[in-house]
Design a protein around this nucleic acid. Structure first.
Lengths: 240, 240
DNA sequence: GGCAAATTTGAAAATCGCTCAATTTAGATG
DNA sequence: CATCTAAATTGAGCGATTTTCAAATTTGCC
């Protein structure tokens, strides 16, 4: 019942062969988890998928759950890196928020198998919070709050919201939609909801905008009306 | 592995004593589930919590999972009924939406144990979709989409959103926040976030109000500038 | 080839959900 | 109170699965 503190492979060398087999297990497990679900997956099936005996499995991972965490860490880290590579090329908090929403949706849609495991099983696992994988997931989630803060600095987002709450809205929205997509098959594509979701999020988060349907380039009561808000770019990042 | 179709207690009388013990089991199970999680909960622990033997358990429920579903059905139905009682006294889609948000938040906060079971375990159960309990949960969730449609009719909500998407936003927001509250203990109280959540949802869903910082009533480039956009009410919903 | 370390595994222990035959209890009847 | 019946309960154990471990095999190196 009690979990091992440290993995029993700690005394072994992380040789190339070893690491390859480790990947074998993870990929095999991912496949079986996605098909059967975590609970229905047996050690036997997992071991077969990796072409090893059940006993060998325990040389690589200390439990079924640990594989699950490894999968999560692998996928999330990869996607987070990808997003961090793109982010600098995307200008302004508004567009960064669009990037995040799009990235999450496309990632989920393109990795249905992993997503099923992540949203249906991982979220309910109590030990997950203590895993390294969770730290990576947290880091990814933090980007939402960070971008919101950026937007407040830039003056495009309202400043009276808890960034934490914004994060909950964006990710909750996306994850709930994705869960429905997984379980009920509705909507057919989540990525295609991108623009609507972005629109809804923006309305909740943006400063109450001038919603004039025509372009203005005039002065009213002596105040200049900006049509192109891409100038306020001087504030440093708030990294907290 | 395969589930029984019908419960094996069907031939028994539903005596008072019997129903009392049934409640004992459910309440005991809820406690253990809430503490340990579904997976870590053993039949033995559950039976002890109800002061019966493991064998007796199966005279009342056909599986561990069935108790889980029973718990959900019981709680959700009770809360749904409560909400349906209040709803008629609340006027207008806007206020009804506030009611729903408040009801969900307060229910979750006041039923921490059940909420832990529902959000952490039930959501990940594949069989849940086939259970009666799920139908009740769906019914409760539908109220959000219904209220949105009401709001469109009343002309207070924008008419270009899929009600289904609105539902996903509202419930996703709330559930994600609640999950964080359960697992990380942040925020301290979810019910107290009520007004902010309502405000964010409203901004996403309401018809765009005139938020011009200055009143405009002029023509630019020959096009009339509308200050009051509450006329375009004729296009049908896009339900995709 | 020979050796040590790394890797693998068969077999069995331990746990758990669940079943079933057998026993105990509750309640009615005379 | 004795008897009977149906309801309620349970100990014992089955089958499936996770996990452990000592022994066997493979690999890398001299």
């Amino acid at each position: 019942m009690e979990k091992k503190k440290s993995n029993n492979r700690s005394f072994k060398k992380a040789t190339k062969r070893y690491r390859e087999k480790e990947v074998n297990i993870i990929e095999g497990a991912l496949k079986v988890f996605g098909e059967k679900g975590f609970e229905e997956t047996t050690l036997s099936a997992m071991s077969q998928a990796a072409n090893i005996s059940e006993a060998t499995f325990y040389e690589y991972f200390s439990s079924k759950e640990e594989v699950l965490f490894s999968i999560s860490k692998l996928y999330t880290q990869r996607e987070l890196d990808r997003m961090m590579t793109i982010a600098p090329y995307v200008h302004g908090a508004r567009e960064r928020m669009r990037l995040i929403i799009q990235a999450y949706l496309e990632f989920y849609e393109n990795n249905r198998l992993y997503t099923a495991v992540a949203l249906l099983t991982l979220k309910g696992s109590r030990n997950f919070l203590k895993s390294e994988a969770y730290q990576v997931v947290r880091e990814a989630a933090r980007t939402v709050a960070d971008v919101y803060k950026e937007g407040v600095h830039e003056g495009v987002f309202r400043d009276d919201l808890d960034p934490y709450l914004v994060r909950n809205m964006v990710l909750g929205f996306i994850e709930h939609l994705t869960t429905q997509w997984l379980l009920v098959g509705r909507p057919e594509s989540i990525a295609r909801q991108r623009d609507t979701i972005f629109d809804m999020v923006m309305r909740a988060v943006e400063k109450k905008p001038d919603t004039n349907p025509v372009e203005l380039n005039i002065q009213v009561r002596g105040l200049p009306v900006r049509t192109d808000p891409s100038e306020s770019n001087d504030n440093p990042n708030n990294s907290g």
